[in-house]
């Protein structure tokens, strides 16, 4: 089976905007919405927005990722929300 690092941009792009659970080599789990996967290092960037808390960002380094499971699929609305917390000034630039 292909390692996470050796996947294609198509495969990585398929998890963007969805809520996922990322498992790493130490069996730690991280949940959040995928903002991006770096095509160079395969690192996963998760954004998590919880009530009464400031939005937080977690980067799981690609070499440590063993599994990524989609928990809940995102919508256009979640994509818009994520961009508004993460790149308020640049939303229009990256909305390809």
């Amino acid at each position: 089976m292909l390692q996470w690092r050796d996947r294609s941009p198509q495969h990585w792009h398929e998890v963007v905007n969805h809520e996922v659970c990322v498992t790493n080599r130490d069996q730690q789990r991280f949940e959040g919405r995928v903002f991006t996967v770096d095509p160079v290092s395969a690192s996963v960037v998760l954004v998590s927005v919880q009530e009464n808390e400031r939005p937080s960002v977690t980067v799981i380094l690609g070499h440590a990722v063993t599994d990524v499971q989609i928990l809940r699929r995102g919508t256009e609305e979640t994509e818009r929300q994520m961009k508004s917390v993460f790149l308020p000034d640049r939303a229009q630039i990256l909305s390809a």
């Binding site: 730690q28 400031r54 977690t58 799981i60 380094l61």
Partner: peptide, 8 residues
């Protein structure tokens, strides 16, 4: 490094 995190 396995992961890093910060608040926005």
């Amino acid at each position: 490094v396995l992961s890093c995190s910060f608040e926005l």
